[in-house]
Design a protein around this nucleic acid. Sequence first.
DNA 1: CGGGATCCTAAATGATACTG
DNA 2: CAGTATCATTTAGGATCCCG
Lengths: 129, 129
Amino acid sequence: MSPDTPQPPGTARPGRSYHCHVEVTVDVIGGKWTPVVLAHLKEHDRLRFAQLRRLIPDITEKMLAQRLRELEAIQIVDRIPVSTAPPHVEYALTAQGRSLAPVLQAMWEWGRDWAATNRLAVDPVQFRH
Amino acid sequence: MSPDTPQPPGTARPGRSYHCHVEVTVDVIGGKWTPVVLAHLKEHDRLRFAQLRRLIPDITEKMLAQRLRELEAIQIVDRIPVSTAPPHVEYALTAQGRSLAPVLQAMWEWGRDWAATNRLAVDPVQFRH
DNA sequence: CGGGATCCTAAATGATACTG
DNA sequence: CAGTATCATTTAGGATCCCG
């Protein structure tokens, strides 16, 4: 196993006890990139690795792969190999992943409003096939 | 300035550019403890430092203080010194902080459901004055 | 009670190179 | 295209002591 693959979240972690439901959510989808990846998958239904990379310009391939492996392990994301020529891989939210929609939606809207209030520039990359 | 006071979030950070509104939200209320602190303040309206500490048993005083300073700096939380004998301090969400309610609510509900599905124990500390 | 100051550790993230 | 391996770094988080 890769030496810096993190513990799969969502599973009981040794010594981790929760005292608030919000802690659980943070444990599962916390981190810098996880909610961003999930938000894009929520918007686009199915995305290839390279498409996600383009939509999230500042993520490294390593981080993107790591987050996807993690989300796949806890069945929030499906990994779908597609046997075209050349073959590729698509990612999509599972039913459990789709249950995150209200969280992701609320985060998206709040970020939009906060950016407006504080005049922060947000420049989404437009989607390309 | 303390050597490990983080940059105030919400303000433009040097070199940080956003390509998704969700990134903004993560930047402002991301991290292990911030959403938990905010969720408790949302529930209880006003809480003293010591009360927050009890409600979040695993947080250290340093982290709690650091998160509160941060949230105060960007005006998501109000710090209210109360001149009783002995004096104490109360914390509350500002109007801007209250705008996070949908995010926190969605996170709380999702965490509750995920914990149930995965049989994770969550034992909230009961509130005490 | 409500912290600040120091020092330290571990996890998360990142750069770069390479591959089936 | 879709990754993995290695190495380096950043930074969040924590332990401890101290203080008005």
